[in-house]
Design a protein around this nucleic acid. Structure first.
Lengths: 191, 191
DNA sequence: TTATATACAAACAAGTCTGTCTGTTTTTTT
DNA sequence: AAAAAAACAGACAGACTTGTTTGTATATAA
């Protein structure tokens, strides 16, 4: 477009002012998959809101499932980074574990109690979508490792992990952090 | 049909040998919703497998969501009955709690690790489907009450409830009862 | 500046979905 | 046996789905 080209000419390269189609697709898909669910979000909505042509979409992603895998991999990274950052200020292990539960509440407020993208998508897919399932399993394995690295006692680490998981789900179901507070109190009593 | 009518003539009333269309719909929907998910199961598949005409379907159920609510209400009843029966032979409270975790494993084996219908559907629906959501919330409330009635300590009851919930989800995700065994060991150590 | 790669719009295919409607047949009740 | 209720098959509407294709325009690199 005319104005757009002038804009580039004055302010520099395109990359600086507008992300690539692939990036725009992933940004919109992340929001839509997380807020509407995977099956309820169509390709057409994604590309229309990302201002990308359909042919361009299929140049970057073989299938919708392919996009889903890429989305989950990125979510995995950004989610763990956020968790690490959130718990990084804690001075000891106990505090770090408790901070992880504060992170759930923080995430719930920020994302309107949409819960865990990974578990939500698990409930939507079929056994045939193995590539998606394995990304979800890897994510949860890594979360278990996160707690295992903090806690020597293997069974206690599993214990915390299980409470962490149900805290996410129950707060999603009731749209409230109340149960996370209770869960936090429980965790404090066992570590 | 010819043979069918003879059958009725010889053996008695229809009700005794063939369930009503409404019943056949609910039976098929129960299986399909639980095994394929709600959004992935269409009305057409349900009525075709239930041998019911589409017009008959819409005589019994206003919408697909209406069927979903009825399905969940029935699942609620049958699931709780099964849990009650499974835990009824336990002689004391501790045993009963542990038996509840055995019930998860029993259910997983029987239903091929499809997890909790209620939580699965929660992940699939939108905020607008309030009537469905409230059935799910009621179900989980009743489950919490189930544990509260067994355990005086309110926080401990919540604790067990949270472990119960994550046990279902994690065993679904990994298609294995391994984590339920661990959860059972944890529960034994805290009651 | 020319060549190559990328992105575009928009039509199209082939199928899915929920829900409505018509007209016929079967079952139940009076 | 006649009247009313329920179930049937199946066409239809209208909107959606994922993915393909054609031809054009734009951006980047040689």
């Amino acid at each position: 477009m005319f104005v757009y080209n002038i804009f580039i000419h004055i302010f520099g390269k395109k990359k600086e002012i507008m992300s690539s189609p692939r990036e725009r697709i992933l940004e919109r898909a992340s929001i839509l998959f997380h807020h509407q669910g995977y099956n309820s979000t169509g390709i057409n909505q994604i590309i229309s809101e990302a201002n990308v042509a359909k042919a361009s979409f299929y140049q970057h992603f073989k299938t919708k499932d392919d996009l889903c895998v890429t989305f989950l991999n990125r979510r995995h990274e950004s989610w763990f980074n956020a968790l690490s950052e959130f718990t990084s200020t804690s001075e000891n292990t106990q505090e770090k574990i408790v901070a992880a539960f504060d992170f759930i509440m923080h995430m719930n407020e920020k994302e309107n109690f949409r819960g865990c993208s990974f578990l939500n998508i698990m409930s939507e897919i079929s056994k045939e979508q193995e590539n998606i399932l394995s990304v979800i399993q890897s994510h949860k394995n890594d979360l278990r490792v996160f707690f295992s690295q903090l806690i020597e006692d293997e069974l206690l680490a599993t214990h915390i992990y299980l409470l962490f998981e149900s805290s996410i789900i129950e707060s999603q179901l009731f749209g409230s952090n109340e149960i996370v507070h209770k869960s936090k109190a429980i965790v404090k009593s066992i570590i």
